[in-house]
Design a protein around this nucleic acid. Structure first.
Length: 254
DNA sequence: AATCACACCAACCGCGTACAA
DNA sequence: CTTGTACGCGGTTGGTGTGAT
């Protein structure tokens, strides 16, 4: 038994959207807001499936979308985020205001891949192409309940957040180089590993907001929830209620 | 001017997941 | 617990534009 179709395709338009269809969709969402994509087309008078409407809105019609070329800063941020998340385009898009996952995915496949290859970097592994293939290292599952350490580690060169660039570590026989000194990867203290803490903050987490609490109780462990390590663009952290928009910097991550 | 190759990007497709019944 | 439905995501496709020959 196959999956039931998301809609009755026989009576649906396909292909490029017309200006009239765009207007119908925009007008409807302006009036009624997003949501219930399945019933939206009929309510809006569109001969499209809900999926198609959602995609059109998300990728093209949303008023907060930034059109135009990617900046060099965006390029570098995408590279950096891709080294962290892999092909999790929605996660990456969440860190680039006004950009969609589809847009970033397309841009990655058409521009950044080539850019990295020209630098001699494998776009998938973010390691020099001349290196032997590393053992499989899938990106962390968004559902992972525990911290995951990316191994081998990715180094973000430079202390200045403005100059952060994703660079694969020089790795010769498991060594890594940082600040001019070479260290066996095995000897690297755990806190220097590039670590993604994907634990969901359920219960009490001590965030930036709680620095004062921590000062009052120095024995308490400083735990920073994911939202504070990575940052939310458009919504506040639901565990610590930080509402400021935080830009991604190396200091947020490392 | 015609044709071809390539790049770009909007849109589609199928799957995984969340959630309600 | 199972099942059905809707949504969101990532991979892929196909149309269009542009430059080279």
């Amino acid at each position: 038994m196959g999956r039931s179709p998301c809609c009755e395709k026989a009576h649906m338009n396909k292909g490029a959207w017309t200006k009239e269809e765009d207007k119908l969709l925009i007008d409807y969402i302006r009036t009624h807001g997003e949501g219930c994509w399945r019933s939206l087309p009929k309510a809006a008078g569109l001969q499209r499936c809900g999926k198609s409407c959602r995609l059109r809105w998300m990728n093209y019609l949303r008023p907060d979308l930034k059109r135009g070329n990617f900046t060099d800063e965006e390029d570098e941020l995408i590279i950096k985020l891709h080294s962290m998340f892999g092909n999790k385009w929605s996660l990456i898009a969440g860190r680039l205001p006004g950009r969609t996952d589809n847009e970033i995915k397309n841009y990655w496949n058409t521009h950044i891949k080539r850019k990295l290859l020209s630098r001699g970097i494998d776009p998938q592994t973010h390691r020099p192409i001349t290196e032997p293939a590393a053992p499989p290292n899938p990106p962390p599952s968004p559902h992972a309940g525990h911290s995951s350490v990316l191994s081998p580690p990715i180094k973000f060169a430079g202390e200045d957040p403005e100059t952060v660039k994703a660079e694969p570590l020089s790795q010769e026989e498991g060594n890594y180089t940082s600040n001019g000194t070479t260290t066996s990867y095995k000897e690297i203290p755990k806190e220097h590993h590039f670590e993604l803490n994907l634990e969901l903050s359920v219960g009490q987490a001590t965030c930036h907001r709680a620095e004062s609490d921590r000062a009052a109780n120095p024995e308490s462990e400083r735990v920073v929830c994911l939202c504070c390590r990575i940052g939310f663009q458009n919504e506040s952290c639901r565990s610590c209620q930080i509402s400021e928009v935080r830009s991604l910097t190396s200091s947020n991550i490392l």
